[in-house]
Design a protein around this nucleic acid. Structure first.
Length: 418
DNA sequence: TCTGGGGTCCTAGGACCC
DNA sequence: TCTGGGGTCCTAGGACCC
């Protein structure tokens, strides 16, 4: 049974990247700004509230944003600062309770049921968090408090910008009733439209719709979740540690005809990033998936599940190449605009390396002679990179550097812990 | 003049096993 | 002689989140 009281908090920094830029450069305060993008290409990574007022949103192409808001100022991101300040905010949260579930660089759930005797009721704790983040870090943060995670998250969205909303037990239904269904976690543009087609626009209307009808439109899982949510039955607990289930890397490319050397170079680079992250944490994965995006935004994926987990750079690269060409050939003739490599079905790498070589030679098997050689090469490279930096050695001349690729610091912001 | 990069979870069909 | 039912794994695609 859920704990009584609105003891689940959701803390969410407001327009995080943009707020950091305005903190760093006072000349940007009060002005519509966009991090990333630009009128000539790229996408907006974050928009300040002044920009949002003009309809500018994250993920929007830069040229469209500047059309919506001609006075929009584009700034390059200070990605290391985002990491540092995000961590500083999490430290403030950790002072309140050890039960913190960080779900991204800029937001987290807290279970404060054990902290009320120290800091007072949830409303007081929420206010304290907001004051301390403002005073110590200099950033605006919104907080929602409720009996469940789902509801706390909705409350923080309603609180934005720079606010606090507590949904007291007993008033949940009244609080949710008039809110748009799009505020529910898991309802994006597609499902919002599907519900609108049924005349369902508010959470109250959703709650009054038979769950069988909702499941029919949205599928069993989403429909069931929504109905449970609308009835305010949400058993999810705050989880402090969670292991990643997949690791990937992708790169948008300038539109090009797929050609052997270019595709190989990109896949080698991506495979290298992924496998290094795996090895650094002693992990490996059995399933390799390659994603290809074609001109016109059509995508295709190809995947292969191996009998044993892989974490070797060359092995991953070779598999990725096979898979990519399978997808490209099926779509030919075509131009490609993105390549991605990811590894899932993760497990412990150490168990793999102890495996005896009972099979015929096979470079994909870590226990085989070739597999062992590759592991040794990777190990040396990892060591060199640790000592001299990530660019000290590589398998192939990296033709990607510059070429529109985003900085590594930005990629690292979004990486989950393995 | 078309849109980043890191993830999670769900679905449906087919292969395969008992 | 031509057929049940349940379970698991794999693949491809899609919606969604930050």
């Amino acid at each position: 049974m859920p704990v009584s009281g609105a003891t689940i908090l959701h803390a969410d920094l407001d327009a995080f990247y943009a707020s950091v830029e305005q903190l760093l450069d006072p000349a940007l305060r009060g002005r519509p700004i966009a991090v990333g993008g630009g009128p000539r290409g790229g996408v907006v990574l974050a928009a300040s509230y002044e920009a949002k007022a003009h309809g500018v949103q994250g993920g929007m192409p830069g040229w469209r944003a500047s059309r919506l808001c001609p006075e929009l100022v584009f700034v390059r991101g200070h990605f290391r600062e985002y990491q540092r300040l995000g961590d500083a905010v999490m430290a403030v949260l950790a002072d309140v309770t050890p039960t913190v579930e960080r779900i991204s660089i800029d937001e987290a759930f807290l279970d404060v049921s054990g902290a009320t005797h120290l800091f007072g009721p949830p409303a007081a704790i929420g206010a304290r968090i907001r004051e301390r983040v403002r005073a110590d870090v200099g950033l605006p943060i919104s907080v929602g408090a409720a009996r469940t995670k789902h509801l706390a998250k909705i409350a923080s969205q309603v609180a934005k910008p720079d606010g606090l909303v507590v949904v007291a037990p007993g008033v949940e239904r009244a609080f949710l009733d008039p809110l748009p269904v799009g505020l529910i976690w898991g309802v994006g543009p597609v499902n919002e439209q599907r519900l609108a087609d049924l005349g369902i626009r508010t959470i109250g209307e959703l709650a009054r719709t038979p769950s069988s009808a909702v499941e029919h439109i949205l599928g069993h899982a989403v429909g069931h979740k929504l109905s449970a949510m609308a009835q305010d039955e949400d058993p999810r607990r705050v989880v402090t540690a969670r292991r990643a289930r997949s690791v990937g890397a992708q790169s948008a490319l300038s539109r090009r005809r797929p050609e052997l050397e270019g595709v190989r170079a990109v896949l080698a680079h991506l495979s290298d990033r992924v496998s290094r992250r795996l090895r650094a944490k002693g992990r490996a994965g059995r399933t390799v998936t390659v994603a290809v995006r074609f001109a016109g935004m059509r995508r295709a994926t190809r995947s292969l599940t191996l009998p044993v987990p892989v974490a070797a750079t060359l092995t991953l690269t070779e598999i990725a190449e096979r898979l990519a060409w399978s997808a490209i050939k099926d779509a030919a003739p075509c131009e490609i605009t993105l390549l991605g490599v990811s590894v899932s079905n993760l497990g412990d790498q150490r168990a793999v390396q102890l495996e005896l070589d009972l099979e015929p030679p096979d470079p994909w098997r870590p226990g085989s002679a070739q597999g062992a050689a590759r592991s040794a090469v990777d190990e040396s490279m990892d060591q060199i990179r640790t000592r001299f930096g990530g660019d000290a050695v590589g398998y192939l001349p990296v033709v990607l550097r510059g070429g529109g690729a985003v900085p590594d610091e930005f990629r690292e912001l979004a990486e989950h812990d393995l």
